[in-house]
Write a protein that binds this DNA or RNA. Structure first.
Lengths: 150, 150
DNA sequence: GCTTGTGCTAGAGCCAGGTCTAGCTCCTAG
DNA sequence: CTAGGAGCTAGACCTGGCTCTAGCACAAGC
């Protein structure tokens, strides 16, 4: 096992990185092809990849951005900007703000959907115990405004 | 245009339904093949589909469930239960509760991701105007517990 | 010297969820 | 009669994001 040698920089094999990020080794190679690393991944003689602690940190950022629905092309663009270094912060800001907006919109949409879902849960619950719910043929909560029939 | 004839039941062509649901006509036919309608869609002589107001209501439910990430197989299962009628409400309740749990988990995950995203937005903002941010080489907010370096 | 473990590459395959096409059928209006 | 517009079917195709396979290369341990 390769663990923090002196103080220099931790190094990891692809399997170790997979373990600590939760990504598969396939996904790691795929991400590399997709240009999602800040620096070219070093290779051992023999061609094996060697990852640094920084790589793992960056991957964890990528994982969060992906989990929040950032598409790979956007993530790649962001990576390019960070890689290019100082000077493009305004563009990074714009990109992140757009992503923030998409994520908040997504949360809002989910929260709204949750209204219907909870309404249905409630209907089935009180149908189960007692059941004076008038909701037999109706699928939508009364709170859903619009599309009202005459 | 076909609009509410007597009081019987509104009827719509596929194009009209596409218009008022936002789904494409392709998607409507696809959903039908996938068994996402409560009743077999009626056909005119000539084979054209005729949808009722109930179909449109149900589609709107489907749209919300899909938007909240319910996979088609689960939505189909739910449709089957509703179609089967009275008696399986406990199973519907279970299904909806599971979905509710997935959605709240998803919201929680997005909200957590939002922490990182907002952190980055903040970093780039104060880098822009003033810029005493110490965040040059660091990608993660200090609030991210764990995986702390020595 | 052989097996086992870990890794490599190129490229094929897979899944979800639609989307699009070709070729045909109707109906209605001019 | 003819053209346009809406619709039909079966089935091919697409995008995104991985995932897997085949065939090969090392390095270490028995």
């Amino acid at each position: 096992m390769v663990e923090e040698s002196v103080e220099e920089e931790a190094q990891f094999g692809i399997g170790q990185v997979a373990e600590r990020t939760g990504l598969s080794v396939h996904a790691l190679r795929f991400y590399e092809r997709e240009g999602l690393f800040l620096n070219p991944v070093r290779r051992l003689s023999g061609g094996r990849r060697v990852y640094t602690g920084h790589d793992v940190d960056w991957l964890n950022v990528c994982i969060i951005l992906r989990a929040s629905g950032m598409p790979l092309p956007v993530l790649r663009r962001y990576t390019e900007l960070v890689r290019a270094g100082v000077g493009n912060e305004p563009e990074r800001l714009a990109l992140m703000r757009e992503h923030e907006a998409r994520v908040t919109a997504q949360i809002a949409a989910l929260t709204e959907s949750l209204d219907l879902i909870r309404f249905k849960v409630a209907v089935y619950e009180d149908l189960r115990d007692g059941g004076e719910s008038a909701a037999r043929e109706c699928h939508t909560p009364p709170t859903t405004r619009g599309t009202a029939a005459p």
